[in-house]
Design a binder for these strands. Structure first.
Lengths: 190, 190
DNA sequence: ATCGTTTTTTGATATAGGTCAAAAGAATCT
DNA sequence: AGATTCTTTTGACCTATATCAAAAAACGAT
């Protein structure tokens, strides 16, 4: 879904408003694996994913990559606390496929928030949507078995699960790659 | 912190605006354990906690209470997805102490969001703040040992940890009460 | 097609933390 | 104060999942 359609769907901006808002976004073509944010830097931009899948991840104390969130098409992506609080990012952000994204800086976004009440509303809606998603994941992680977590992933993100490497999904679900491999195998047999 | 001060601190409302906004909240005195929302109902209200500690929790398949979130003084509390999406709540919401809270219905809140751009902004700010907190907790739960999770709780919610029963904290942190008891004991010795 | 690299699977073994049950300790009520 | 109920601790045992290592499969580049 294009960013234009996405914005129109959520809030009924006028043509002029929409045009102004869109003019503050920049289209970027990024290739697979290209880092958008690196751990330790402040993440200055919010991205809309038009094509591709992104993720943010960090390196744990053993140097292993832990995926925190995936961002599919039609989602806004950023290093959340870093962007909002202008603090050093705990995560790296990258695209997992060659991708088309639209970026906006925090300053310009704030400007739009101030200029348009409707834009502020959009920000609130996206934020609460994200919040409910994260709460849902937290739920899945907190008290479910590895198998149940995999099933959660299957229903919640069927589009993502077959497009990204197993190891990333495993770390996203809080289990080892080996465990996920075994679970998936058993699933197919049943 | 009173709700008045809380609102003033976050956004610079005029006296008139503030008065109008506050007139839509209702003060409620609730006693310990009194249910504010029950699993299965749609949660219709957002609460500001002025005094006391609240939590939301659910009963898992074994009938055990699992605490999902605590809400300390000066925080807004609700059954998140239920309130925002008007869906049946997965959680029960209750106060853990005799408490003073201020409630507002979704309709009235939406009305305020529409009436005041600043109020919409407040909504967005609170929502992103909550979001970053939940992401932070997710982080702690996802890849840390039981001991590390307890330490996270100590630094993040020192006020809460000594005011609520151990079992609730244990389920909040995704571990059994026994495990938390053992961890805490060892901590004190060191 | 073939070689090298990355990803996934499989097997063997280890362990953090769960469960169950009972004792000890606090809090609450009469 | 004693009885009752709720909360926390302790011990013994068990299991889901981690880790390590190596084989197999899939993917990409030449």
């Amino acid at each position: 879904m294009t960013i234009t359609d996405f914005l129109k769907d959520l809030v009924d901006f006028s043509e002029r408003e929409l045009e102004d808002i869109l003019s503050h976004f920049q289209k970027e073509i990024v290739s697979k694996g290209q880092p958008l944010v690196e751990q330790g830097q402040v993440c200055r931009k919010l991205y809309y994913v038009e094509k591709g899948i992104g993720r943010n991840y960090y390196l744990n104390s053993d140097g292993k990559e832990i995926t925190q969130l995936f961002f599919g098409e039609g989602r806004f992506m950023t290093s959340l606390e870093s962007f909002f609080e202008e603090s050093p990012s705990l995560y790296n952000v990258e695209m997992l496929e060659d991708a088309e994204i639209h970026s906006i800086s925090k300053n310009e976004l704030e400007l739009l928030f101030d200029r348009y009440h409707k834009m502020e509303k959009l920000g609130r809606l996206l934020s609460t949507e994200m919040l409910t998603k994260v709460v849902h994941k937290l739920n899945a992680i907190q008290f479910q078995t590895a198998k149940e977590r995999y099933e959660y992933m299957l229903t919640e993100y069927p589009d993502i699960i077959y497009r990204v490497p197993l190891g990333m999904i495993a770390s996203y679900l809080g289990m080892s790659q080996e465990t996920l491999s075994r679970i998936r195998k058993k699933k197919i047999r049943d």
